[in-house]
């Protein structure tokens, strides 16, 4: 087992699956992004047309930028709501702590499609939100503003992805040794000072991981925009998806997918390096 060829053989054997079904597909879709469609034929003559069409057309570029903005908002909402909640759970006694955590993490295991659907029925014209607002006299008539726009995509994504943010933040808080907090208090630091100088820096990796989850999940989602976004709520994921469905332009879809892929990769690498630098 110790000779180099033997070790290479073992490596090839073990890595075959991931290489074949992860690396090769990514390679083949990147190659596809340089192809073009003629009639119903996909011809690969290594053209940059798809990228020119994407970056040269303000409609697509704007959709991409708006999607990034949407993802940033989802991430921000996730952290602003998720951090205090994770902190709150962390401060409970051991028994209630895990019960609370379970309550906040359980929605992750509930059907994704169904959550979107029920969010749509809550936000809709005859939905719960309108019934409550009309019933309490805040609105005189049911309003359409809650559904089928960018705002409804934002609300739905924020609700669905929030547990993904809470969990990593909680896990990083949990990793902080309790005696560190105690020591800080013994040295005369107030609760605010301890939080700012001990708890917050040590929980930053988890916060970054949680934000990353929300960002990347929002970035590629195409079912939420399709279900609650209506005709105006387009995101880059929805545009890519349409290229593989009705529009039938795989190479163009692959090119936009490549942009998305490289952007997501960059975000993951940057977030990963920030998080690991903090861990020291």
């Amino acid at each position: 087992m110790n000779s180099l060829p033997a070790r290479l053989a073992v490596f090839a054997l073990v890595a075959a699956g991931p290489l074949l079904f992860v690396v090769a597909p990514i390679g083949s879709f990147l190659v596809m992004s340089f192809a073009r469609v003629e009639g119903h034929q996909i011809i690969n003559d290594m053209t940059l047309d798809n990228y020119v069409a994407f970056f040269g057309n303000w409609v697509y570029l704007k959709t991409f930028l708006l999607t990034l903005w949407l993802c940033a908002e989802v991430t921000l909402i996730g952290i602003v709501l998720g951090y205090p909640i994770a902190w709150f759970i962390w401060r409970r006694r051991a028994r209630t702590r895990y019960l609370l955590l379970l309550l906040f993490v359980l929605p992750l295991f509930m059907s994704y499609i169904v959550k979107i659907y029920t969010m749509r029925s809550i936000l809709g014209l005859n939905g719960f939100l309108n019934q409550i607002l009309v019933g309490s006299g805040i609105l005189s008539a049911p309003s359409l503003v809650f559904l089928y726009n960018q705002g409804s995509i934002l609300i739905t994504m924020a609700v669905i992805f929030l547990p993904f943010v809470i969990l990593p933040i909680f896990l990083s808080l949990e990793r902080i040794p309790r005696n560190l907090v105690q020591a800080s208090a013994d040295l005369g630091a107030g609760a605010g000072t301890t939080f700012r100088h001990v708890v917050l820096p040590l929980s930053l990796p988890g916060t970054i991981a949680g934000g990353l989850f929300a960002f990347v999940l929002a970035l590629g989602d195409f079912i939420t925009p399709q279900m609650v976004g209506g005709p105006s709520g387009f995101t880059i994921g929805r545009v890519i998806w349409s290229q593989f469905g009705l529009a039938y332009n795989w190479p163009f879809g692959a090119a936009m997918g490549a942009v998305l892929f490289l952007f997501a990769l960059a975000v993951i690498v940057v977030a990963g390096s920030i998080a690991s630098r903090q861990r020291v």
């Binding site: 990514i26 990347v216 970035l219 590629g220 795989w250 879809g253 997918g257 998305l260």
Partner: peptide, 12 residues
């Protein structure tokens, strides 16, 4: 990665 990338890469 966003699942859409995994999906479309395997599709192609």
């Amino acid at each position: 990665l966003p699942p859409i990338v995994t999906g479309l890469s395997l599709l192609i």
